[in-house]
Amino acid sequence: MTTIWHNLKETVINTYNSLGLAWWVEIETQHPRCTYYFGPFLNSTDAKVATKGYVEDLEAEGAQGILVNVKRCKPDNLTIADDLGERIDRKVTPAFSGQI
């Protein structure tokens, strides 16, 4: 039953996301100057609950000047590194990852 619920929830989230109705956590950092998007989420409550972990991870990496916004959107890029002028897709893994 849990698997069925999980699959149904994923389908609804993906549908909401394709329509631009899903909720995302947008986190901007001043140093480094980046914007990160975490999600998608079915509702704002789920997104807000997840926010704490994302902020803790960024703080552990040394990020400073963290601003958080939970909103409905459909980001084109999940990470925008303004300092470097780069747009980074976190879903993409390096071709040589895992090799020694």
Rank of each mutant, 00 (worst) to 15 (best):
M1C: 12
T2W: 14
T2I: 11
T3G: 12
T3H: 09
I4Y: 04
I4Q: 09
I4F: 05
W5P: 13
W5K: 11
H6V: 11
H6E: 15
H6S: 15
L8P: 04
L8D: 11
E10P: 00
E10F: 00
T11D: 11
T11V: 02
T11A: 14
V12P: 06
V12L: 13
V12T: 08
I13L: 07
I13F: 06
I13N: 10
N14I: 00
N14S: 15
N14T: 09
Y16L: 15
Y16P: 02
Y16A: 13
Y16C: 11
N17D: 15
S18T: 09
L19I: 03
G20R: 10
G20A: 10
L21I: 05
L21M: 12
V25N: 14
E26G: 09
I27H: 02
I27K: 02
I27E: 01
T29A: 10
T29P: 02
T29L: 05
H31Q: 15
H31E: 14
H31K: 14
R33V: 06
C34H: 03
T35W: 05
T35Q: 11
F38V: 01
F38S: 06
F38M: 04
G39V: 02
P40E: 00
P40Q: 02
F41W: 09
F41C: 06
N43M: 05
S44Y: 12
T45S: 14
T45N: 12
D46K: 11
A47Y: 00
A47C: 10
V49A: 15
V49Q: 11
T51V: 12
K52F: 05
G53W: 07
Y54C: 07
V55Q: 01
V55R: 00
E56R: 14
E56N: 14
D57P: 05
D57R: 12
D57A: 14
A60E: 09
A60Q: 10
E61F: 01
E61W: 00
G62Y: 13
G62F: 14
A63C: 15
A63K: 09
A63I: 02
Q64M: 13
G65D: 05
G65V: 05
G65E: 04
G65P: 03
L67I: 06
L67F: 13
V68H: 07
N69S: 06
N69V: 03
V70D: 01
V70Q: 06
V70G: 03
K71S: 02
K71E: 08
K71Y: 01
K71L: 15
R72K: 13
P75G: 03
D76T: 14
D76L: 12
D76E: 15
N77S: 13
L78A: 04
I80Y: 04
I80G: 04
A81D: 14
A81T: 01
A81C: 14
G85Q: 05
E86S: 11
D89S: 10
D89Q: 08
D89V: 07
R90A: 08
R90W: 01
R90C: 04
V92N: 07
V92D: 06
V92S: 11
V92Y: 03
P94S: 11
P94R: 07
A95V: 14
F96R: 11
S97F: 12
Q99P: 00
Q99R: 13
I100H: 10
I100A: 08
I100L: 10
